[in-house]
């Protein structure tokens, strides 16, 4: 992938296609989540927040994993496209982690009786959120393009350890948060229609993530080129 590859006519076509696919995915997922999927036997209608909360968390994991790969790519090759991918993914990851935390809080109030409680999954997710906000702050406070990319890449590589910690925190520690219901050794423990809706929601969020990523990477590569042009001038 070259720096200009995402900004040509084919890139515009990819962005448009991803945008339309994201829109279609979001519409289908919304109808399935709000109409087709049955309410939970115990939690009732409030359980439908799961179709936003879980895909948001999945998208955040995906984005932060991409930050790790792109950061390693920058440290290895010093190609600017990797830095652009890393910053785009970090911003998307922070956005979706925030969304997962907010959606989780809205679900927690009627279910647990509180907006927030000090339990391992919530704390580790909040810590992951703060760490990647720190990553973005580190970038924003540095004017030197190369140095900023390198500093951020170090954090991007190290911070990936948060993903397994957040994901496994519910099994490592006695937690209030429910245990995994889909990724279980003995298969998903969920109604078929709920599972199908969740899968479609995850796919829709992944498409949105890809769309945002392509748009943001194009923006960042364009910004990088402006900075380099200014430096050359």
């Amino acid at each position: 992938m070259t720096t200009t590859a995402l900004r040509g006519s084919s890139a515009s076509w990819i962005r448009l296609s991803l945008g339309l696919a994201s829109l279609a995915g979001a519409l289908v997922a919304s109808v399935m989540a709000l109409v087709w999927a049955p309410p939970d036997a115990n939690q009732g209608e409030v359980q439908r927040i799961m179709y936003v909360h879980v895909p948001s968390a999945w998208t955040a994991y995906l984005a932060f994993a991409i930050v790790f790969v792109a950061s390693a790519g920058w440290l290895w090759t010093r190609r600017r496209i990797f830095d652009a991918i890393a910053v785009a993914s970090a911003e998307i990851g922070v956005l979706f982690t925030g969304l997962a935390l907010v959606a989780g809080s809205i679900w927690a109030k009627p279910t647990w009786g509180v907006w927030w409680t000090w339990e391992p999954r919530l704390i580790t997710t909040a810590v992951m959120f703060v760490m990647y906000v720190g990553y973005l702050l580190l970038r924003s406070l540095s004017a030197d393009v190369e140095g900023r990319a390198t500093r951020a890449a170090v954090i991007g590589v190290v911070a990936v350890v948060n993903i397994p910690i957040v994901h496994l925190s519910v099994t490592w520690m006695n937690a209030l948060h429910q245990l995994p219901t889909v990724l279980r050794p003995d298969g998903p423990a969920m109604d078929g229609r709920m599972l199908a809706t969740l899968i479609v929601s995850v796919l829709a969020f992944t498409l949105i993530c890809a769309w945002l990523m392509v748009a943001r990477v194009a923006l960042e590569t364009s910004r990088q080129e402006r900075v380099l042009d200014a430096r050359g001038a």
């Binding site: 704390i123 810590v127 992951m128 703060v130 760490m131 906000v133 720190g134 702050l137 580190l138 406070l141 540095s142 500093r151 170090v154 954090i155 190290v158």
Partner: peptide, 26 residues
Amino acid sequence: IIDVALTLRLRGRAALVPVLAVPALL
């Protein structure tokens, strides 16, 4: 040390070092 080194010549270092260090040291 790593966090201070990463922010060595940045103007926001005083605020940034705790933001980077505290989550990692949890």
